[in-house]
Design a protein around this nucleic acid. Sequence first.
RNA 1: GGCGGCAUAGCCAAGUGGUAAGGCGACGGUCUGCAAAACCGUUAUUCACCGGUUCAAAUCCGGUUGCCGCCUCCA
Length: 491
Amino acid sequence: MTLRVYNTLTGKKEDFLPLRGNRVGMYACGVTVYDLCHIGHARSAIVFDTLYRYLRHRGYDVTFVRNFTDIDDKIIKKANEEGVDYRTIAEKYIEEFYIDMGGLGLEKPSVEPKATEHISGMIDLISTLIEKGFAYPRDGDVFFSVEKFKDYGKLSGRNLEEMQAGARVEIDEKKENPLDFALWKSSKPGEPFWESPWGEGRPGWHIECSVMSQKYLGETLDIHGGGRDLVFPHHENEIAQSEAATGKPFARYWIHNGFVNINREKMSKSLGNILTIKEILNEWHPEALRLFFLSHHYRSPVDYSEDSLLEAKTGLDRFYITLHAIQEELKKHVSAKQKKEDSFSIGNSQKTIESFQARFEEALDDDFNTAQALGYFYDLQTALNGLLGFSGGQPTDEIRSLLSQGYGHFSKMGWILGLFREEPGAYMDRQKKEGLKNIGLSEEEVLNLIGERNAARKNKDWKKADEIRNSLLSKGIILEDTPSGTLWKIK
RNA sequence: GGCGGCAUAGCCAAGUGGUAAGGCGACGGUCUGCAAAACCGUUAUUCACCGGUUCAAAUCCGGUUGCCGCCUCCA
């Protein structure tokens, strides 16, 4: 089965065939480090992290590059506002970025280059573009001439005439065509600058990605991606620069993730509804956020709300409860004999468990359909819960083997989705601890009440037993009586 | 104004030509002292609307309506 990916460039799903056999070069546009990362950055990071994991699972040798834009107008502006050097701002937010990505549990890319470390490469590339007639210097600035590049617009599906008709572009006297974009910008007094053949200045936004991707991945990348909004102008301009300079295709597959809306509104500074990763991780488990995102196709827009995160969190809790129960069941050393009449039900579960991985991979092979893949995880969970209920604390060898096979899927295939990474017991303990803190009860108090209730139950004093249960319930603690004792959890 | 996307049950959400995954919720059953949890079953004859192509359409084509994105910094 071949992996198929949707390519923004062609607007179609295509078979994924890397340029160099087994090796895959993948570049994702990172962040401009001038502020804290928000939920939109989180989605993009999670999407490409999942791709990165799945490609490796599929046996590819992946080099994943994700850059930092650490010099830019917004960084300079922020530095001026705070009266510090631009590097201070960049370093601060790079540090915060690492804290956030770590909090989300993301894999580290192979290379994380910074724009400011590749200035000379940019100067070289700009010089090449001038030599080849694709760019022109003007009063210390250098512009790329979009008219010279015949394919301009091929990624975003537009052409120069249409764009000029739209004409919402600011007129800059220096530009030959209003759509020409800056490769190099002369610096104003007091601004950071680098020496260049065109005078003191700094790079334009797009040039860094062309240079850094080429440096680490060669002239043609297998995968290039980022958020939808980068399609135009950023990625369009990257194609123009890179292909004009090398004469070769820049990237074979363009992958773009959809946006995150907040309560049906676009996230924006003016609406004041920017939700940072820190704010989310303060309140939610990182895997709940991940489960929420991966329940949607990566290209679709997604609407964030407390309710939807709560739904994801509920789902995550249930997965961990099942995993914990499997662990407990496998600890039991008794090995009961198979009862004959039960075999049919086991057969269904067995089928689900044994076919899981093939279905899971088939879903991800189809343009990374994580929502479908998760659907199979729910099926797997149902099958395993069925077995658990069925064995009733007396697992046969057959059941033990199926449970352990299922558990293996959760840890191995779960890794691809970045889910189920925590020790189930630890996950549940933490839930309890945090819940108790909010309720204002100690674990000891809860256990005492459970003891009291069980004493009442023994005496068939159902009234008292129910009173205790209801009083705990009103505080948000749910009791479950099982053959092996009374369990409790936070609602 | 130009370009593009989306519309699937009460809600969330897969599905791009072969007869509607999955989750949440709700209801019924099994289990239980009663619950809870878990399991089993029910919950869209139909995919915004109208027309067309086809043996066959949620899927393709044309039109209508509604929502959204990009065209300026944006994940």
